[in-house]
Amino acid sequence: MLKYWWKILAVILVLYTIINGFLIEVPALPILHESIRNLFFHVTMWFAMIFLCGTSWIYSMMYLSSSKIEHDIIASEAANVGVMLGAIGILTGMIWANFTWGAPWVNDPKLNGAAITMLIYLAYFVLRNSMDEEQKRAKVSSVYNIFAFIMLVVFLYVLPRMTDSLHPGNGGNGTFSDLDIDNTMRTVFYPAIIGWTLIGVWFLTLRIRIKKLSYQRESELINSEN
């Protein structure tokens, strides 16, 4: 069995998304027009972001119970890839909003929630960099990260649903699944979520491996000095 089969799967799924995402029939809707296809690219970024930030959350909790520095490395790198995907999500959303809602940034609870979430995660990295002592940094940032993910869920999924939001599925707004009567969009949307998420996981593994290498080298240097 190939060890990297899931990377191939990720590439195949995203290629399928790119090809079919443009070629399938989509419901004809006012305002949205062909931009409804952004569902396969903009929305999936957020799904991948949630998955990576969730991974980060789990590894932060694992670090607190195990005190293994490896868990902290995975938690911080997963948050890093998650923030990268979130930044792409915000930028693509701004382009989409500019042409459908009339402005790149409207006072939508989900948009503001996304912005706050990004700031919370940026503060996580600032917090990490402000501490030199390894165990202390890992412990404090793990505790912070556990709260950060809960805030993410609150700001992106709970609050927008309680008020009015322009986003589908929020505040009495219909979802895309209501419009996609014959389920053609689903045949691309679900593979797209899995594909983009796996691409994010691939980048995550690359970052973890680099971090471990430099960590190994650092501890070797310290040992040779002693």
Partner: peptide
Amino acid sequence: KIYVVVAVLSIVFV
């Protein structure tokens, strides 16, 4: 012509 866009995006991704 949409195939052109699909082809370009595929190449970028690959």
